[in-house]
Design a protein around this nucleic acid. Structure first.
Length: 226
DNA sequence: GCATTAACCACAG
DNA sequence: CTGTGGTTAATGC
C-alpha cells in the first residue's frame, strides 16, 4: 500500500473539499491508492465489499451479469465515486466495475466513509447530490431503452458518449461491438446493421472503433424520434 | 395478408 | 472478434 497524502491530493472530489483537517488525516489512514490496467476488475459482482472506491483518473464500465446475459449499466469517467450504492446497501456487490482504460483509484474503508457521512453534513450533501444525478440518469436511460426503437437508442448512446464522456465529435469507442450491444440493450448483429445504415446515410463515419459524428442534427433527430 | 422491426442462427474473413 | 445473409416471431396497418 503506497503511502499517500490526501490533504495535498490535486484531484480530490467536490465532497472532500468540505472535510476538516482532522478528517483528511483520518482519510489518509483509511484509504489506499491503487492503479488498474485496462481490462482489470476493480469491483467484482458477488464478492464481499468493504470499500467505497473513488475513481481519480480513467474510464470504467459498471456492469452486471443478468439472468440471461451481461448488461452494461453505465460508463463512468473520472472523477467519480464508485460502488457507494452496493457497498452501503448490500454486503455483497450487486454489480462489477471494470477498467476500460488504465485507471487510478482510491479504496476507502466503508465504515470510515459512513462515519464521514454521519459526521459532516456538507460532505454528505455532495455525496447525495452525486447519487441523485446518477439515479436520474439511470431512470432516463431505462425509459429510453424501454420505449425507443433501436436506431434511437443507438443515436442516444453515441450522442451521450460524445457530449458527456469525450466532449468531441470524434472519439474512440471504448467498447467492443458486443459490449456496445450490451450497453444499448440489443444484439451484436442488430447493432452492426444499424451502424451500417448510419454510415451509408453519412450520419457517422466509422474506422474500427474510431467514430466520428458527421451529421449531428440528423443523429439528434433519430434520437428524439426514438 | 403485408410490411416493419429486431432477435436468433450459421458462416466467413 | 465482426459483418452479413437467411430465417422467424411479434406487432401494426
Amino acid at each position: 500500500m503506497a503511502k499517500h497524502n490526501c490533504t495535498d491530493c490535486k484531484i480530490r472530489s467536490v465532497a472532500e473539499n468540505f472535510l476538516s483537517n482532522d478528517e483528511f488525516g483520518s482519510l489518509e489512514s483509511n484509504s489506499a491508492e491503487v492503479s488498474f490496467k485496462k481490462g482489470e476488475i476493480i469491483i467484482k459482482q458477488n464478492a464481499l465489499s468493504l470499500n467505497v472506491v473513488y475513481l481519480r483518473s480513467g474510464l470504467v464500465k459498471i456492469h452486471m451479469a443478468g439472468p440471461a446475459k451481461e448488461k452494461i449499466l453505465r460508463l463512468v469517467k473520472a472523477p467519480s465515486y464508485l460502488g457507494i450504492p452496493t457497498t452501503l446497501g448490500n454486503k455483497i456487490n450487486n454489480y462489477s466495475v471494470t477498467a476500460l482504460q488504465d485507471t487510478s483509484v482510491c479504496f476507502i474503508d466503508a465504515n470510515f466513509f459512513k462515519m464521514l457521512i454521519a459526521g459532516n453534513g456538507q460532505f454528505a450533501s455532495e455525496i447525495i447530490l452525486e447519487l441523485c444525478k446518477n439515479e436520474l440518469f439511470d431512470q432516463q436511460r431505462t425509459v429510453n431503452q424501454e420505449q425507443k426503437q433501436l436506431p434511437g437508442r443507438i443515436a442516444d448512446t453515441f450522442l451521450c458518449m460524445s457530449e458527456r464522456l469525450f466532449d468531441n465529435d470524434e472519439f474512440e469507442v471504448p467498447l467492443s461491438r458486443n459490449e456496445l450491444a450490451d450497453l444499448i440493450g440489443t444484439t451484436r448483429e442488430s447493432l452492426s446493421r444499424v451502424l451500417g445504415q448510419f454510415c451509408k446515410e453519412n450520419i457517422i463515419s466509422l474506422d474500427g472503433k474510431i467514430m466520428k459524428i458527421i451529421d449531428r442534427p440528423k443523429l439528434q433527430q433519430i434520437c428524439d424520434l426514438g
